[in-house]
């Protein structure tokens, strides 16, 4: 017998043995009941949400919203505390008023 034929027979034998082993494993596993329910303990119960602050989904929109709120406060009249009569005025108006009233400034000229 030539070496090529010998190798062919050897290969066929190995393939046969492996097929037998795989068949055995599959029959053994076939005795387990089939189920589609996820039984991993990590996947049971409510999904866990990490504590705030969370990842920003839309950073640009969030900063826009904050700026819009701030702009509203910085440009409108309103009440800080209506019962105490404390009023909120636009920042431009506050600048004018504060300039009229003046900032406390020392008499001495600034030095180096």
């Amino acid at each position: 017998m030539g070496p090529i034929v010998l190798t062919g027979i050897g290969l066929a034998f190995v393939v046969g043995v492996v097929s037998l082993i795989v068949y055995g494993i599959l029959t053994y596993l076939g005795t387990y009941p089939f189920t589609s329910v996820r039984t991993n303990p990590m996947s049971i119960g409510d999904s866990q949400i990490p504590p705030a602050p969370r990842i920003e989904e839309h950073p640009a929109i969030e900063i826009q919203q904050l700026h819009a709120q701030e702009d509203h406060i910085l440009t409108t009249y309103g009440w800080t505390d209506k019962n105490k009569g404390i009023v909120r005025i636009p920042i431009a108006r506050a600048m004018e008023l504060q300039l009229e009233r003046g900032f406390p400034t020392r008499k001495e000229a600034p030095k180096q």
Partner: peptide, 27 residues
């Protein structure tokens, strides 16, 4: 910052007269 402080701590006298009626009705 002093201006910011004034803007949230003003009195009704700091509001121009034409703005006052709207403010009186606001919350």
């Amino acid at each position: 910052i002093r201006v910011l402080q004034l803007s949230e701590n003003a009195t009704i006298e700091d509001v121009p007269p034409e703005q006052r009626p709207a403010l009186e009705n606001a919350q």
